[in-house]
Design a protein around this nucleic acid. Structure first.
Lengths: 160, 160
DNA sequence: ATTATAGTTGGACTTAACTTTAAGTCTAGA
DNA sequence: TCTAGACTTAAAGTTAAGTCCAACTATAAT
């Protein structure tokens, strides 16, 4: 039932330094201390710890996570605020994931681009004549292939 | 056809400081200089700049982006290496997106959790009797609802 | 010719999120 | 009782990615 900082660190696969840093930054006000002043984590604390690591994964700065933890400890009168906070984070995360999907699309187009270059033995097959600029029609073609149902992951696949 | 650092900064919506920093870190070795020593960007450079911003979006550190740019400037003999580099980034990005989806799932479960709490007027509806620990059966129930085809985005929706 | 604006450099500063150090305390086992 | 290992704190150090400053140069418009 009670866990030391070292045990928690191992279980969450983070360092004790990090846990103490979080505590200093106000993320762990719920952690008890024993007579010797050492931190004593309880099972219920893992709910908070899971939330903290989720918000961290979502890209929130430590300070904002602290704000949320404060709301949690303030009791039922902050239920609405907590809901709104999470809804905002959901929205932000949706946007971030859409951006990453866009990045992924670019990566796949570039893989296809290099697949063509490797097969031709030279990057110039992708350039406009007498330039070092990528032929815009090529990207159009890639987009068309994807729009026509090709798997963008496969399009750039290359066996050597 | 030629662009100043300020024009490029505006077009990419980043600061001139950032562009100079990238240059200092070796990300822009392809940029020309005029007689006065000022950077002169050409149209072809935007291919590189787009790639840089994509890799940045993907979360790559500036140094690794520099490595890739170096490969690009080394000519056709690095085509394979460049392909592999991009394939690795694609893989890493897939993993990151999966992790973010997991984070999103958690956020939506918590929204549902708070929706219940708000409707009951107290968070205790979510706890195991006589504890402050979340009832594990509740999360099971949420997972079940999602597995049964409910939209997790809707499940936590709350009108007030 | 003067002035405003945009560019140059090297180097210092900032912020976030750790990470380490120093100096000391506590606890369990030989 | 002694020692190893885990803990405590405050404070300093690190790293990444900018961000800014000082001192200077170049260009364009009045």
């Amino acid at each position: 039932m009670p866990y030391s900082i070292g045990q928690v660190a191992k279980r969450l696969d983070i360092s004790t330094y990090t846990l103490r840093y979080y505590d200093k930054e106000g993320l762990l006000p719920f952690v008890d201390r024993n007579a010797a002043g050492r931190r004593v984590f309880k099972d219920a604390d893992f709910n908070y710890l899971e939330t903290i690591s989720c918000l961290k994964e979502a890209g929130l700065p430590v300070k904002q996570i602290g704000t949320f933890i404060d709301l949690c400890l303030a009791g039922d009168r902050t239920l609405d605020e907590r809901y709104d906070f999470l809804a905002e984070q959901e929205q932000a995360l949706e946007e971030k994931m859409a951006a990453l999907q866009h990045t992924m699309d670019f990566l796949r187009w570039k893989k296809w681009y290099y697949k063509r270059a490797i097969q031709a033995g030279t990057e110039t097959v992708n350039y406009l004549p007498d330039t070092t600029q990528t032929d815009p029609a090529l990207r159009e073609k890639f987009n068309q292939l994807v729009a026509d149902g090709a798997d963008p992951q496969d399009l750039g696949h290359l066996d050597r």
